[in-house]
Design a protein around this nucleic acid. Sequence first.
DNA 1: GTGATACATAAGTTGATTCTTATGTGTTTT
DNA 2: AAAACACATAAGAATCAACTTATGTATCAC
Lengths: 104, 104
Amino acid sequence: MTEPDIFRALADPTRRQMLERLSAGERNATELREGLAISQPAVSQHIAVLRGAGLIEERKTGRQMLYRIRPDGLAPVVDWLTRYRAFWPERIDRLKTLLKEMDQ
Amino acid sequence: MTEPDIFRALADPTRRQMLERLSAGERNATELREGLAISQPAVSQHIAVLRGAGLIEERKTGRQMLYRIRPDGLAPVVDWLTRYRAFWPERIDRLKTLLKEMDQ
DNA sequence: GTGATACATAAGTTGATTCTTATGTGTTTT
DNA sequence: AAAACACATAAGAATCAACTTATGTATCAC
């Protein structure tokens, strides 16, 4: 769950896709696999990487595991990004707009 | 300079270190190498990856190349991150504070 | 209890990444 | 013009990441 782990975890498109799926809510491993042309163990291994990076957490329900995004997992990325804020002046505006919307 | 390229480029600690160095201003390849226990070609190769991801740009000055962060290079990461904003409520506050500071 | 289901772990293979040394191109110095 | 410097590119070696098949553990359905 250190910074290098997180960037490594995010480097893989399959794992980003899984995160995307989880952003809509809890999913089990089988659901996370849907549409991905990879084996079940491969999914388990990706999950282990995401978990090791602190990006997801899980709860056991019967024989399945329900995975969800760990709320603060992306914080190190946000922190890292803010160090480069001077270089994305344009995007700042978008964020401002976004934050305003969220205030309402 | 597609999203996968960017995440892949950021996955390497050496390249993040180089970016960090560039965040302080323009550097040539030799300066980027300082303190890194890798060969000169290795540095050139890392530079090529960062460049391919659209994260840096350069200008030629005599026999040296001066590299700098490409202002909008990290935009895709910012965009990607905002899709997960619901999951970092705490960091939002930091950003708000940050943006307020920048307004002054 | 037996069989099926959901997931994890082990071990090995393959392909991608990162490094090295060797060499090439262009620029500056003497 | 020759030597030194700054960097890039090529080719090959070593390491790492992602996948596979095989197998293990726990839970559920019958």
